[in-house]
Design a protein around this nucleic acid. Structure first.
Lengths: 203, 203
DNA sequence: GATGCATCATATCACTTCGATATATCGACG
DNA sequence: CGTCGATATATCGAAGTGATATGATGCATC
């Protein structure tokens, strides 16, 4: 899951680990603050598998030299220190490889994994990398899962030997699932109207 | 978090590991199916810390003997085989200890941990074990967190260099937080009307 | 009454993730 | 000049996941 998220961010542009953490939240809607203890090992793993590679950052000190005043001396020292892939302030910037792009496509388009709320949101946030057909399939699969879940959680909410608090949790969960279903139906209707527009234009 | 959930279930009555898994879902509203790879180590850990203890299940074969017909022979064989704590079909039934009850109270009432959605729901599901004052504090703290989260996620939803899918994820997240807030406000108003009822009756 | 299948039940494995902590650099501020 | 907060990587132990193994039990079916 984290792998897909990182690859998805790198599809857009190069990133370093620290930046990925904030981007996960801001661009992909990952609500839990993913820890560095996940991100750095994940990047190392992806690099080991040849899906990403460390790059010497473009013009390491160029910006600093143009805006800064007398820091040229210190800068060159630092640049000397840094080995391959280590840029300004020890940043390690990663780039997705061709193999990485392929693997990203496969992972995103769903091998057989069942989505929970987090992976589904992630996939939707990256849905522009899916074909319209795959998008619809993703949405409809999730829709089915949620309908089943709704039935379960409604049953739990009616369980008479739960106290008021537990029943409240259950019925709130049901409302959450209902909200998710509305969202999915919205997304599906957009997909359909898009393909209509497409069809009309093709005439 | 899992510790609190298990202790919470055991506050009600004794359980064995397999049963705890289903009860987490049905009684505590834990949506993710917690794996046995979590539950059994958690029980072992809790036992090691003296918060729970294995019990010889009450009347191991009594039910089977009374309802069944000729199975007394097989039953006694099995009972012989089972060492302490191993009852019918190898079940290991756990009971909460006095230390466990105390620790449960402390954990539930909040040391300093920040709630995410899962731990908060869990606490609400177990809220009957909290005093009214602690319940209100729990709800108001969560309310504050959600207000901050709402501001963040609304800002992300307005970010113009996200594509329509990512923005949709963000705005759906915002709606989810709004739903959570409504829920909490409901719970808070119930707490307040309960204490009013209390006050009125006390007159 | 044997057979065989689904469910109940515990356990363990490799791998991932989390939370805390360590370390160092940079920029801003007084 | 010092130090504080943000940037940045790294690592550790503890905990959680998903898969898999193993076996007992109940029940249906022949």
């Amino acid at each position: 899951m984290l792998d897909v998220a990182i690859l998805g961010l790198l599809m857009d542009r190069d990133h370093h680990g620290y930046e990925i953490r904030s981007q996960l939240r801001e661009r992909l809607g990952v609500s839990a603050n993913v820890s560095f203890g996940s991100i750095y090992p994940a990047l190392a793993r992806l690099e080991r598998h040849g899906l990403v590679e460390a790059v010497a950052p473009a013009a390491p000190r160029a910006v600093a030299i143009s805006t800064g005043s007398l820091s040229g001396e210190r800068a060159s020292l630092r640049t000397l220190r840094g080995s391959a892939g280590l840029g300004r302030r020890g940043r390690k910037v990663y780039r997705i490889t061709e193999r990485g792009r392929q693997e990203f496509g496969v992972l995103l388009a769903d091998p057989t994994t069942v989505d929970d709320g987090r992976t589904f949101s992630l996939r939707v946030a990256l849905a522009r990398y899916l074909t319209p057909a795959l998008r619809v399939r993703l949405l409809e699969r999730r829709r089915q899962d949620l309908l089943e879940r709704l039935a379960e959680v409604r049953q739990d909410a009616d369980n008479p030997d739960l106290d008021a608090y537990a029943r409240s949790v259950m019925s709130h969960a049901a409302h959450g699932v209902e909200l998710d279903l509305e969202w999915i139906d919205d997304l599906l209707s957009i997909e359909r109207s898009d393909s209509e527009t497409f069809a009309r234009e093709a005439k």
